[in-house]
Design a protein around this nucleic acid. Sequence first.
DNA 1: CAGCATCCCGGCAGATACTG
DNA 2: CAGTATCTGCCGGGATGCTG
Lengths: 128, 128
Amino acid sequence: MKENFKENHPECREMILPVRDALDVISGKWKISILIAMSLGNKRFMELQNAIPNITPRMLSKELKELEMNLLIERKVYDSFPPVIEYERTAHAQTLEPLIEELRRWGEYHRLVVTGTNIHHPVKEFQD
Amino acid sequence: MKENFKENHPECREMILPVRDALDVISGKWKISILIAMSLGNKRFMELQNAIPNITPRMLSKELKELEMNLLIERKVYDSFPPVIEYERTAHAQTLEPLIEELRRWGEYHRLVVTGTNIHHPVKEFQD
DNA sequence: CAGCATCCCGGCAGATACTG
DNA sequence: CAGTATCTGCCGGGATGCTG
């Protein structure tokens, strides 16, 4: 998967690899939901599970681990009694904000386009 | 998948849905490669298959269909002899450019971060 | 509470062969 | 050339139950 355009277009491979890296990091099924739930102040495992309907502990655990490996969140263990575990977004997660906002904007626009609004401009180009 | 934050945070659901829409459209395994190969001038099925190493005709066909359904490409049949079929990016695909560029930028930056560049002020370094 | 272990199933996607 | 058909392995991810 990483070796697209291996021999043909080395300059393209250099363009595609970072794009796929970015997509791999954020396109997990629950990752965006988790990051947003955390930005709303949910920090603990149970809080996240409650905030995100339908997620199973197994999936939550798995996605949290991947987010942590990608340095987007940090797992903090306070050995109070009872011990408390909290997850927090890192500074690196902040750098994702513009990208997520761009995804949101394009996603909204795209929905307008595919649901057939001819209010806008470029739509008429793909009507036969 | 679409019903995250159903009851808890309706405003979040409205944020997540478009993001997931956008991701669903572009995060197919070969979609970015196909769009880039097309932007390089590859139009015909065989050209695309040659330009994208390791893709099978089955996958190419499937991804082309999905891109077409999302109005990102257009399938044109010229009934010359022999009949020629060409795929072209639509105007709507142009609107994806800033998003892909943002993905590429963040993907590159992210790789720097995870491969251990010691960053003290991540946000500042990320900006141009 | 914060997860891990197990079982299991549907679908993604590769390999290969075939068609108009 | 531009795909389709079939067979198959793999694994993402749900359900359930269990632990420290």
